[in-house]
Write a protein that binds this DNA or RNA. Structure first.
Lengths: 144, 144
DNA sequence: CTGCATCCGTTACGATACTG
DNA sequence: CAGTATCGTAACGGATGCAG
């Protein structure tokens, strides 16, 4: 059944310093933010420095404000570098870091698995009744 | 360097129906929500049905409102089952589904990798200057 | 015991206008 | 070009009170 070894995981957790524990949470939180992964993917896919407006074109639906914020946070987190060229008109280039790249590599199998299992999700969602009238005796709770 | 194969990824994306594409995004969005992963981990670790208040005890810092919301969303998404027992006092039990369990299994390596690399994140964050005065010629932008 | 309803402050997000 | 400033809206999240 390929379960997660929670005992080991907890042991690992307890070996972390409080600061490190906090940091791990922060990292998880950061990559969970709305545009973060999308922006990172765009930069990783490009594989080369990208200007602000190029990124904006490729992250469909993002506002200038949110893009700025997301990129700055990624920079703080060491996942993206930001380079300002002292020119007129201004040029700013963003590039994914080694750390960011590796993080995406870790995340990729999750995405692949999700895509490969969309249909199971579809089924699961279709079978959702939506009321509180679950019957405990019909276990796979489809159609009470 | 173990990169992500973006070409293949894009090809996979385009083979998805618009509905499926939307669903994948929804799934990603859902698991990115603040308490989702934590709640799922607690249920998975327990490995057996848990009552509302037991879950609440183990998800440190969550409010009742947020826990209710999170659990309901997980139920909708097919990641958690909710069973109401028609008793007095009321009893409601939550349990992770097969799909939810598998999703966590997929996510676990990411967490392991993050923990194993905390120190790199620490270094990256420590080296962040925080102003816009990046010098493009001193690449690893520590101390302009 | 579960968990909904309400209030209320904080944060997130988008649109628009403006600056170096 | 790459933002910042400002505004308005919407979602989030905690605390409290209450119902079944």
């Amino acid at each position: 059944m390929n379960q997660v070894d929670w005992e080991t995981a907890n042991a690992i957790c307890e070996r972390l310093s409080p600061e490190q524990d906090l940091l791990v949470r922060e990292i998880v939180t950061q990559i969970s933010e709305k545009w973060t992964l999308w922006v990172m993917s765009v930069l990783a896919e490009a594989g080369e420095p990208m200007r602000f407006s190029r990124v904006m074109e490729r992250v469909e639906g993002i506002s200038q404000k949110s893009l700025t914020k997301t990129l700055r946070q990624l920079e703080k987190g060491g996942l993206v570098t930001r380079m300002v060229f002292p020119e007129v008109p201004p040029r700013v280039e963003y590039r994914i870091t080694q750390l960011g790249e590796e993080l995406l590599v870790q995340l990729h199998p999750v995405w692949l698995w999700t895509v490969a299992n969309v249909e199971r999700f579809e089924v699961a969602r279709a079978g959702y009744a939506g009321d509180g009238r679950t019957n405990p005796w019909t276990q796979p709770r489809v159609a009470v």
